[in-house]
């Protein structure tokens, strides 16, 4: 399986973390780790997500990007 690291910027809204975790699992990616913090001044959340899968990472990036409260998704590390 390939390992990937994603950097995700979000609007700090209810359940945004749950939404990302649900989409990640449903689209066939296993979660190795997660770091999350919110800048309370800007209400912007920053999430680092470590995942692995046999599937291309673009499939997950596109699906996370579709979530309403997501501002940006970048793949910061890719072993594929």
């Amino acid at each position: 399986m390939n390992r990937y690291q994603l950097a995700i910027q979000v609007d700090d809204k209810q359940v945004v973390l749950e939404r990302i975790l649900q989409v990640t699992r449903y689209r066939g990616f296993l979660i190795d780790g997660i770091n999350a913090k919110v800048n309370t001044g800007t209400h912007i959340g920053y999430i680092e997500l470590f995942v692995r899968s046999d599937r291309p990472i673009e499939l997950l990036v596109d699906q996370i990007n579709k979530l309403i409260d997501i501002k940006d998704v970048k793949v910061t590390h890719n072993t594929a």
Binding site: Q14, V15, E18, R19, Q22, Y26, L67, I68
Partner: peptide, 14 residues
Amino acid sequence: IFGLSLACTKHSFQ
């Protein structure tokens, strides 16, 4: 229902 809605809506609010 807010939690249940995650997989079956485009978006949801409480």
